[in-house]
């Protein structure tokens, strides 16, 4: 389903909303915080160690590389060569020259993305979807929101299987899916239309099932399970937000 990797440790035992708040604070600090080295500092001093202690270094590194590499590549090439602020030439490659200011800019952007991505991956890797939904509901998320998130996650494999079945059926009827652009474009509607129409019918029936489970009842809902949310974490979240705001403020005015 999600990128969640089962495990145990400090991060796994924290309340989902705590991790969410931490992630958002890091994201804001990375882009609005003081100093150019802040994002890299946060990553090296906080995020990477946390990944290490949670036993997630391999998947962490793998995901960071998978997502960042293409972005970093284009950032360095584009800005190194063509950033308007570029003046100091480092070296030339044929007709184009790599300039220092562009490279610095690319490095800064990459470190920011590294920091934000690093924080979000920590959150997603250590939070099972059920805990996330429960945690959000505990903090006031409306039932329809948690319903939609959970239902989406569960329907995905189901729908993928159906798309594969429709593709196979259409191909058996002679649908061409390779060849010229015109041929491939013509394959689109025969694959998409049955999928969407059948899904709409399912949605209609599922609405009846939801009513049957009293989802629209006006009675206050109770919960089968409960997630521990110790006061320590509550305080930590507030401290996190305050520190972030202070640091951002400091960065703007000093």
């Amino acid at each position: 389903m999600t990128l969640y990797i089962p495990g145990d440790g400090f991060l796994y035992r924290r309340h989902p909303v705590t991790k969410l708040v931490f992630m958002l604070c890091v994201a804001f600090l990375a882009f609005l915080g003081p100093g150019r080295w802040t994002p890299l500092l946060i990553f090296l001093a906080a995020l990477l160690p946390l990944a290490l202690f949670s036993g997630l270094v391999r998947p962490y590194g793998g995901a960071l590389w998978r997502i960042l590499a293409p972005l970093a590549f284009f950032l360095f090439v584009l800005h190194g060569l063509f950033n308007p602020a570029g003046r100091t030439v480092l070296f030339s490659v044929g007709p184009v020259a790599v300039k220092l200011e562009g490279v610095v800019f690319a490095a800064l952007m990459t470190s920011r993305l590294l920091c934000v991505l690093g924080a979000s991956l920590l959150f997603v890797f250590t939070t099972p979807p059920s805990a996330l939904m429960l945690g959000l509901a505990q903090h006031g998320a409306p039932p329809w929101l948690t319903y939609v998130i959970g239902a989406t996650l569960q329907i995905i494999p189901h729908m993928r299987a159906r798309a594969a079945a429709i593709t196979a059926a259409q191909q058996a009827r002679g649908l061409e899916t390779t060849g010229s652009l015109r041929v491939r474009a013509r394959a689109l509607m025969p694959m998409v239309t049955p999928l969407v129409l059948s899904s709409l019918v399912d949605a209609e029936e599922r609405a009846i099932a939801l009513e049957a489970r009293a989802f629209r009842s006006s009675r206050p809902k109770t919960s089968l399970t409960e997630l521990a949310d110790p006061p320590v974490e509550r305080v930590a979240r507030q401290a996190c937000v305050v520190c972030t705001l202070l640091l951002i403020g400091a960065g703007q005015w000093l």
Partner: peptide
């Protein structure tokens, strides 16, 4: 319903909605 990830919780869903 799609709202819950295990059979047990799925059965509980109606009870939760009823309060």
């Amino acid at each position: 319903s799609g709202a819950r990830f295990t059979v047990y919780e799925e059965v509980a869903f109606g009870l939760e909605n009823l309060g």
